[in-house]
Structure formats: C-alpha cells, structure tokens
Amino acid sequence: HNLTITQGKLFFHYNPKLCLSEIHKMEEVSGTKGRQERNDIALKTNGDQASCENELLKFSYIRTSFDKILLRWEPYWPPDFRDLLGFMLFYKEAPYQNVTEFDGQDACGSNSWTVVDIDPPLRSNDPKSQNHPGWLMRGLKPWTQYAIFVKTLVTFSDERRTYGAKSDIIYVQTDATNPSVPLDPISVSNSSSQIILKWKPPSDPNGNITHYLVFWERQAEDSELFELDYCLKGLKLPSRTWSPPFESEDSQKHNQSEYEDSAGECCSCPKTDSQILKELEESSFRKTFEDYLHNVVFVPRKTSSGTGAEDPRPSRKRRSLGDVGNVTVAVPTVAAFPNTSSTSVPTSPEEHRPFEKVVNKESLVISGLRHFTGYRIELQACNQDTPEERCSVAAYVSARTMPEAKADDIVGPVTHEIFENNVVHLMWQEPKEPNGLIVLYEVSYRRYGDEELHLCVSRKHFALERGCRLRGLSPGNYSVRIRATSLAGNGSWTEPTYFYVTDYLDVPSNIA
C-alpha cells in the first residue's frame, strides 16, 4: 500500500525493539523526510534493546553428524571492536523451508527459537588472519532439518551509529543413524509349514526405512522333555500350542467401542483428552525405555581390526524358502538304536541362519518350516543398504507352526516275539517326523474274553527296548493296539495285532 503524509511529521519514542533503520525507511515511504526535528525521533529510546544489523554474515563451514552440527561463519568486528559482546545463534526444527525470524513471537518477546549466546573469538592483530567464530550444536535429532541463523550482539553506541551483522536463515539436516526397533511384532501360524509375521514401523526411523531383515531359527525343545518319565503317576503330560491366527481386521481397528449394538453396526467412541494424553505418555515412556535398553543392555560386537582377528559373527547367506525346513542338525536320541526319531534339535552355532529381506511392506510369510516346531524370529529395521547396512537392534518374537495331521501315527506293522515265561516283546517304529517329539506310547492289549488293559511306555523305555515287553501273560489269544502321544496330543491307534500265548508248562520236552 502507498502511504503519503502531505502535512505533519513523524514522532517515535520509547520503541526499544524498533531499529532506527526501520524508522528511516518509514520517513522515505511516507514522504516526511526532512520535516522531523532532532528530538522527534529519539536516538536513545528507539532500538536500544534490539540488534540492528546492516551487514550480512556468511557461514564459512558446515559439518553434520547424526546428532551434531558444527558451524563456522566469517569474522565480524565493528569499528570499535570492544562493542562486540558476542553472537546469538538461533535454531529450531523446520520440516519445511518457510521459516521466518519472527515465527511464534508474542507480545512478551518470546519466540519459538532456541538461542545460544556465543563469546567472540580472540581478536588477531592481523586483519587478514582473524579467527572464524563458530559453535557445535549438540543433542539434535537424527535425520531432522533445522533452520539456523546467527547475528551479532553489540553494545549501545553513544554516537548512535547503527552497526551489526546478521546471516540469512539456512537449512541444515542432520545425518541418518540406526533406527529404533520395529514396533509390535506379531507372529502367527496359518499352516503346519508357515508363519505369518506382521509389525509396525519404528517410532524413530532416523532416516528413510529402506528394508527390513527377518531372521528365523528353529528352537530346540526343553531338555526336561527328553529326561522326564511322563508315565509316572502324578506327572502331567506336557503340551505345546501353536500360535493362533490373526483376529479379523475389524476387531483390530483402534479407537473402536468394545460393545456392539445388537441391531447392527455401531460407531466408534472418540477417545477423551485424558485417554489420548495417557497414550502419549505411555508411548514416550516406551521410547525412553527402549533407548535405555539399547544403550545399557546391548553391547556392540567388536569388529575385526587390522591384526587379522576374525569377526566372530557368522556370515549372512541367503537361502531359498524351500530350504528352511531342514535348518537344524538332527541327532538321534540314543545312538545305539537307529530307529528312534531325530527330534532332539541342538543347533550348531556355526550354522548360517536363513533370512529374508523385506522391502516396502511390514509383513512376511515364512514358508518351508517344520510342522509343530518353535521358531525364534528376529526382526531388524534398516535405513541404508549400501555401502553397508545400517540397521536397528533386533526385536524378537516366537511362534510355533501348526501340527501336521497323521504325523504322530505309527507307520509300519507292530511285530512281536514270544519268549519263555510268557513274555512277549512288542516292537514298532517311532514316527519319523512327529509333531514336536514323542513323549510316550500307549499300549492297549486284551486277552479274548477279558477286559482291555493299558500300559504306558516312556520315551526312554522305548529307546532301550525298541518297544516294550509284556510279562506274566496268561495263555490265550491276544490283540494289541499302540498309539503315540506327542507334544500336540495323541496320534491314531494302530491296526490290531494278534498273537497267541501258550502255557509254557505244557511245552513238550526233548528229553527222552
């Protein structure tokens, strides 16, 4: 807008934040220059609390790290170098490059900038070799853009010569660093050979998330399962459950009422301010606690030095998902009996873990797994792929695949051998790939016309006998059925096997 004052003059007093240069501009645009008398524009009460600059400061050096910015700028000295009290560095987070010096300023003089007072450097006698002032900004957020400017702080001049310097606002972004852990990993099994893994992005990506790394490792069953005799009275049979499938998407929606109208769909109840505040506090606490764990609990591995020492970490090797089922080394339970199943799973520490690289999504279907087997899954978020990966501390989750139908069934015939004193040795093959492992066998036998009897055969007993022995049988026709019990439950009964026990007292003698 054009402003013209045809008559009258300007009068400025007691404006401590208004620089004289701005008042002189007002004289020019209003056409009143030359009308004012000496005392109409006070030299001592206008701009006496402001830094009124008329020179431009330029930054000469900028260096960044993930949490620091090192700045240096060209030296500046007023005509009387004693008038320079120091520099004021202003900075704040700036997602967009549209910041002005006066953003967030209120009537009390406060604003949204963080201000650092910096002492002037030592003055050199040689004007050509003056030290460049600077400042190291610490405690910054990774991968965050900051708006920065600097200006001088000078003393009051009796001659009211307006001098000083100020830089333009520059924008500097800190470097990326390792992201925080992925949030809320959930693993479920939808079949006997697959596990579905879902997660949420890290709360602090500290860069642009480029991919996720998912490692999985087959877990050995508890050692007590191999040692305890679950045929003993009072000892509860062990059981394991597989990871249940995901709930429906509708039930997972946030901010939804727990109660549904019987007449149909209901609208979600909005969260109160107290609920939102509580969630923010919980989120802040979780982030602080995660940072504490990362800094205190997890110790970084030592990389190899120039002395030739090897990095103890196993090298990563990509495998196809079809090879995942046989990740671990199978060892027989008892070496003397080769027909026992290889369900003991000690994992070799030198073995390469299978892994998958996930790009542009937060889910993965891990296939080719062994049925009813526990897996430990390790999830890392990465925001750099080359020249070397920059990934987060791992988040861990466990899951067990679903049982395989008929995996616990005894394959092959049940054979028998009759000894003296009416002892019958029953023999059968253990299931080759049971659900988890076989903890015991149930032997059901009966003599024709009598009630059915049951015998429990422990895992250890089966390994020693290759089956079991029935003792003290009365003469007669017998039928026997056997079924295995694994961590997933009972298998199917075998087809009945028949044998006849004679009275050993009636056996004919070869003595003449």
Rank of each mutant, 00 (worst) to 15 (best):
S283D: 11
H352I: 07
C382P: 15
S492I: 12
N295S: 08
V507N: 15
E227P: 08
G476A: 03
S239M: 03
P300T: 06
D323N: 08
F246I: 06
V296F: 10
C231L: 01
N383F: 02
G472S: 07
P300N: 10
S274N: 07
S348W: 09
Y212V: 05
L437P: 09
R400V: 05
Y445T: 06
L277H: 06
Q275H: 03
T347N: 03
C269R: 04
D503T: 06
L277F: 07
G308V: 14
V299T: 04
D311H: 05
T401M: 03
K460M: 11
K271H: 10
I377N: 01
G436V: 05
E356A: 09
P431W: 00
L225K: 05
Q275V: 09
Y230F: 07
T386N: 15
G476L: 00
E351F: 06
A394T: 08
L487H: 00
N339L: 11
T288P: 02
P387R: 06
N510I: 15
P314L: 06
L235V: 10
E389M: 15
A488F: 03
P244C: 12
T485L: 15
D506P: 11
V439K: 08
T210W: 15
K278P: 02
T502N: 05
M427W: 09
L293V: 14
Y396W: 06
I366A: 07
S283N: 09
N422P: 02
L379M: 08
R459L: 10
G472Q: 08
T373A: 14
P338T: 10
K432E: 14
S479N: 05
Y504V: 05
E404H: 06
S344G: 11
T303F: 15
L232T: 07
G306T: 12
Q219C: 07
R447I: 15
A394L: 05
T272D: 06
P496Q: 03
P312L: 09
K302P: 09
S315F: 13
L213S: 07
K357E: 10
V439Y: 09
V393T: 04
I276E: 01
I276H: 10
S262V: 10
A407F: 10
P314E: 04
Q275C: 07
L437I: 03
E378T: 14
S341M: 14
V329F: 15
V443T: 05
P205M: 12
F462W: 11
G306A: 13
V439P: 05
P403A: 04
W493T: 10
T502K: 06
P332E: 10
W216C: 11
V296P: 01
Y498D: 14
R483W: 01
